[in-house]
Nucleic acid binder design. Structure first.
Lengths: 223, 223
DNA sequence: TAGATTGTTAATCGATTAACAATC
DNA sequence: TAGATTGTTAATCGATTAACAATC
């Protein structure tokens, strides 16, 4: 059914390629090789080549790939060239930060409004984007044909927010609450798991301290 | 050298177990089975059992694991019981949001200060935490024995921020900039890749639209 | 031509899942 | 005892890497 099924790993790596390619000086680098990309990002070159093969045209032996083309192909594959409207549920600190971050437009994400249960927030604006009561969610989503919902409410109300989004006809959810959401099969949930990242950091640090690889402070910098 | 090397995948799942366990009503659930956890989080039960075996005591057949004990063991394994001081480089929107999020303490992360190149921000406070000029970073890190640095600067200055952190004696870096950082071998970088999450969301959505699984809006809700 | 690079096929590696005996 | 659950060993699966012929 799906002719070129792409692995999740590959999908996760594409944005790094994109940002690397964009960081290259345009005039100097018409061609870029998989080996170059791999070295810059600390990856295996065959892996990069396979990833690129999923989304772009063939490279040319000895030269590599046309950088401009690669950028366009990755962007179009990831859907960054078409703007998707999204709403945020939870206009707290994190929600506010996301709401006011202009950079998401580069990724094809356009946050149009926020919703919050807190009546004192309703009616106010963050960066020109209005905060509405939860009761308005369904109507606004359907009228504006919003397909993406972002959850930035506390963990205990995340499932409720999720249910409301689903009921509003949302198709994909980006969840910042550290909770596993239960959704119908046809709804996509992308978990943004900061707690998990933090766990990796924290565990490595704990391990290093236990093994005396680092001191309790900066001793290794002294004598 | 490392007696019980734990897989990165396991490490990433531990926080979900923890948050699930904490969400259980204490009085009702003295014991919790791997099967229950697995079902709740949409995982395989053997996987949960193997993960738990890495960090906790044996479970009891027919009953499961003692919930309280599991919570303690995971927390201690992840180092959440010992508070680590951290600093943030970049006091913009995202940096400010992280700075003012109290919840990190639960994960053993204590953000003590922020640094920013913008002179107009220097001297101000966010949630009682001071913003310092970059020039003060090294001295403060060494004096307070800070081991974790968080990067929330724009992509183009992330490597510079990173170099400064390394020079300041930082041991682990949590990077929110969508850039691959070059660091010495002994420094741990944890990449928080929102662009990658967004890519997954965006690509699935683009695919679904192409396959006509969803309409251009809410038509499927009509007639 | 020689050499860097591509793309593909095969081998390796690691993680997940299945099967099953042991336990309470 | 019967049945739910554990922990372990073996099988499966998928992703990464190695090897190599093809290309410019």
């Amino acid at each position: 059914m799906n002719p070129k099924a792409i692995s999740k790993q590959t999908l996760l790596r594409l944005p790094s390629y994109l940002s690397y390619l964009k960081s290259l000086p345009k005039d100097e680098c018409e061609y870029v090789s998989a080996t170059t990309i791999a070295t810059a990002l600390g990856l295996n070159d065959v892996q990069v080549r396979k990833d690129l093969a999923c989304v772009s045209k063939k490279g040319r032996p000895k030269l590599g790939y046309v950088a401009e083309e690669l950028i366009r192909d990755i962007e179009s594959f990831l859907g960054y060239d078409a703007l998707n409207d999204a709403i945020i549920v939870g206009a707290g600190r994190l929600g506010g930060a996301l709401l006011s971050y202009e950079g998401f437009k580069e990724y094809g994400l356009n946050i149009v409004a926020a919703f919050d249960a807190d009546e004192s927030k309703v009616g106010t604006e963050i960066c020109g984007k209005k905060i509405f009561p939860l009761s308005k969610m369904k109507e606004l989503c359907q009228r504006m044909k919003v397909r993406i919902g972002i959850i930035t409410v506390p963990a205990h109300s995340a499932q409720k927010a999720c249910d409301m989004l689903v009921d509003s006809g949302i198709y994909a959810i980006w969840n910042f609450a550290p909770v596993h959401l239960k959704v119908p099969d046809n709804i996509l949930v992308q978990q943004e798991n900061m707690a998990a990242s933090l766990a990796v950091l924290s565990a490595h640090l704990a391990e290093a301290i236990k093994n005396n690889e680092i001191g309790k402070g900066d001793e290794e910098n002294d004598k």
